[in-house]
Amino acid sequence: MEDLIETLKKQVIEQLNLAEIRPEDIDPAAPLFGEGLGLDSIDALELIVLLEKHYGIKLNDPKEAKEIFASLQSMSNYILNNKK
């Protein structure tokens, strides 16, 4: 779990071009959208691509996204339960 979160931090920074943020700056429990990292709707689409590209997980129901991408913690939980 810890390893996955550390990997996810690096992947999110790279995929979303968060050039001024270091992995240690990201609190796994902090919200990804709004406050926290302040991501936007395009970032949400990039996170969906990240899940498919790196973990083979295709998000079929967009309604799930809000819960899955609430934080890195919730994202890693979802990956562990759905990774192919």
Binding site: Q15, L16, N17, I42, D43, L45, E46, V49, E52, K53
Partner: peptide
């Protein structure tokens, strides 16, 4: 095949 929304915009 992974089109990037961040590039596409």
């Amino acid at each position: 095949y992974f089109p990037s929304p961040a590039i596409f915009v």
